[in-house]
Write a protein that binds this DNA or RNA. Sequence first.
DNA 1: TGCGATCACTGGTCTGACCAGTGCCTGTTG
DNA 2: CAACAGGCACTGGTCAGACCAGTGATCGCA
Lengths: 252, 252
Amino acid sequence: MAISQEISYRLERLILDGGLAPEQKIPSERQLAARLRVSRSVIREALHELQGRGVIETRHGKGSFVSTMVPGSGDLREQGPLMHLFEGHPRTLYDLLEVREQLEGQAACLAAQRATSLDRHRITKAFRALEETDPLSNARPDHGFHQAIVEASHNPILVHVLNSLKNMMLMTVQASVANLNPRAEMRKKIVLQHRQLYDAIISGRPASAQKLAMAHVRFVSKSMRDLELEGSTLIRVPVEQEAAVSHQNAQD
Amino acid sequence: MAISQEISYRLERLILDGGLAPEQKIPSERQLAARLRVSRSVIREALHELQGRGVIETRHGKGSFVSTMVPGSGDLREQGPLMHLFEGHPRTLYDLLEVREQLEGQAACLAAQRATSLDRHRITKAFRALEETDPLSNARPDHGFHQAIVEASHNPILVHVLNSLKNMMLMTVQASVANLNPRAEMRKKIVLQHRQLYDAIISGRPASAQKLAMAHVRFVSKSMRDLELEGSTLIRVPVEQEAAVSHQNAQD
DNA sequence: TGCGATCACTGGTCTGACCAGTGCCTGTTG
DNA sequence: CAACAGGCACTGGTCAGACCAGTGATCGCA
């Protein structure tokens, strides 16, 4: 599927899930482009799709805003803005990772039990790609690897929830792999964790797969926490301004 | 109004008026751009709007085509791409419970660790209410009890996700407590589980709280499965109508 | 005759530039 | 001090031109 469609889809779900409240302002096109590391054109096309669907409205000189009458069929509404939690509350990021730890663990566990040969093939392919990639462009393969695992769980709800959580992270953090990977020692640990996780799933050991996946997320979380404490590099982007930066990226 | 929007409106009207038949190919982006003397970007944005509205489909390398099922107004918002999963796929309900098992477990675990005295008070109150209620009107207290636990986890993300999942269940199943409780033997088990869970949390035993909560959800899930198999009582309500039903009841 | 390479399409993405609203902030002016 | 004018830093809107990536017909060789 085209990138612009993927983005519009993700954004729409984020809105429907209550991550962005009606009337709330969406980050500017330039910010989104930088954050998702795609060109502005792609963002514009994605936004136009949402606009055509009536999910957002854009106003020249001001920005894009979530439509008021989105809910359509009051399902998850009420909960209201989840996103505002992030602003000013860094802890929320770790709350999110806490939940992800649990769910990625479950996904790995289920994958180890349920993966079909096709799943195994997909996971293997993603894993190979992951190992052959240099740390800088590492975000996509990493994402692909974890995604393949989650999908092998054959639990659509799990897939959906985890995607929502990842989307929320993308909106707030310019982060992780790229932040962590460059540090040689950390990269080694992460590569090792991936390899162990891969082995556990492929050879069908649910319990250890779960433990490994959880440890992996916890490790990433802790590393980010450390980084943030020690001062600098972790770039939090409270939906506000842009931190220039060239090519860093995505999650876990 | 923006040029791209003007163009998308003109094209849409053209299509709806029958000027372009379903399945018919629309001129290529470059042609349209030249003909209307605008840049290709504008054309692309206009087309994406129509695409978002479901009026056209575009296929890489081939072109853009008028959608088949355009006519009239037969679009009642496909709101949740997730919701159709439930229709025709009963298993999805158990997928959902599978995820809930994990998260309720985590919530209980965290609650046992983090509950403040206020939280404990709230949980205790909810628990009392639960024990004093007769099985028939049992839904509300049950919900309140579990809700209090989740909130005591002090993880807003967890609260949000679990609420979404519960809502999703509400949309599809009129269920559980009411279905299960009437059966004396089951009711006894459930009451026992609640009591154990309560004790574990109040006395701060995270590990057992987690285990108990997970077992509880799994038990409910299994019971529902059994019920459904053995024939009848489980009332599934296909997403459709308002049902909405203020906010009463249900789940585990 | 049949098959593979080529080529001329199509949409998809990127770049970097400039125009056009909006609103804040500031310095001038009555 | 108050009020207005301008500047400036945003926002979205448009443009140009480049290159990548599917698709399918056509051509040439075996």
